Amino acid sequence: MSRSDDIVLTARHWIGTPYVHQASVRGAGCDCLGLLRGVWRELLGAEPESVPPYSMDWSEPQGDEALLRAGLRHMRLKDRHDEAPGDVLLFRMRSDAVAKHVGLQARAGEGASFVHAYSGHGVIESPLSPPWRRRIAARFALPTEN
């Protein structure tokens, strides 16, 4: 099994986990960052840094790109159009907002999809439709080891 297959399979094991703000426990609850944190722990071991408590609107009032900076510290930045299964996607929910939604690409090309935790839905796999593609602020590759 390839590295990307491992990432996608691990992310899909989280599908059905309820949405719980700041949580990161498969089957019990997670938010979008918690999903990434959980997949990281399952595949790479300990998280690279502790995550401080954050509010639902974290980083927005200050315009702070905290999640983007963390991604740059711990993952390899890719071209936004160089898509592959297993990529970590960082989204801006509005064009003038900080990037603060995370997902893991499950399929690329025709029928592209991503796994993410979404308020009111829990962890789901969604089509990477044009509206979602327009929101991609950054695309990362997980490291091969921690």
Results as ranks from 00 to 15, higher is better:
residue 54 Y to A: 00
residue 57 D to T: 04
residue 88 V to L: 14
residue 99 A to Y: 06
residue 46 A to P: 08
residue 137 A to N: 09
residue 20 V to T: 01
residue 134 R to T: 10
residue 49 E to N: 04
residue 136 I to W: 10
residue 3 R to C: 04
residue 58 W to M: 12
residue 64 D to S: 15
residue 11 A to Q: 01
residue 132 W to Y: 15
residue 134 R to D: 13
residue 121 H to Q: 15
residue 57 D to H: 07
residue 32 C to R: 02
residue 112 A to C: 10
residue 56 M to L: 14
residue 101 H to M: 01
residue 2 S to F: 00
residue 132 W to S: 14
residue 142 L to I: 03
residue 25 V to E: 06
residue 8 V to F: 08
residue 15 I to P: 11
residue 38 G to T: 01
residue 33 L to N: 07
residue 26 R to C: 07
residue 6 D to C: 10
residue 45 G to P: 00
residue 141 A to R: 15
residue 32 C to I: 09
residue 127 P to Y: 10
residue 49 E to L: 05
residue 65 E to P: 11
residue 113 S to H: 03
residue 108 A to R: 15
residue 83 E to Y: 14
residue 70 A to C: 05
residue 98 V to F: 02
residue 129 S to M: 03
residue 117 A to R: 01
residue 40 W to K: 02
residue 42 E to F: 11
residue 41 R to D: 05
residue 34 G to M: 08
residue 101 H to I: 02
residue 111 G to E: 09
residue 52 P to H: 07
residue 11 A to K: 01
residue 38 G to S: 07
residue 9 L to I: 07
residue 67 L to R: 09
residue 56 M to H: 14
residue 9 L to P: 06
residue 75 M to I: 00
residue 58 W to T: 11
residue 125 E to M: 09
residue 7 I to A: 07
residue 48 P to G: 12
residue 9 L to N: 14
residue 2 S to V: 07
residue 24 S to P: 00
residue 60 E to D: 12
residue 9 L to Q: 13
residue 8 V to W: 03
residue 131 P to D: 05
residue 109 G to Y: 14
residue 53 P to S: 08
residue 82 D to H: 10
residue 84 A to P: 09
residue 110 E to G: 11
residue 7 I to H: 10
residue 15 I to S: 12
residue 56 M to T: 11
residue 124 I to P: 02
residue 94 R to I: 09
residue 60 E to R: 13
residue 16 G to I: 04
residue 142 L to A: 06
residue 37 R to E: 13
residue 47 E to Q: 10
residue 137 A to Y: 05
residue 108 A to N: 12
residue 79 D to F: 05
residue 135 R to S: 15
residue 141 A to Y: 10
residue 29 G to I: 05
residue 63 G to M: 01
residue 46 A to E: 13
residue 118 Y to N: 08
residue 63 G to A: 04
residue 65 E to S: 10
residue 80 R to M: 07
residue 37 R to V: 14
residue 86 G to V: 04
residue 9 L to V: 08
residue 71 G to S: 05
residue 22 Q to V: 11
residue 66 A to N: 03
residue 17 T to C: 11
residue 110 E to F: 12
residue 47 E to H: 13
residue 65 E to A: 12
residue 99 A to I: 09
residue 58 W to I: 09
residue 78 K to C: 15
residue 120 G to R: 03
residue 109 G to K: 14
residue 133 R to I: 12
residue 107 R to M: 06
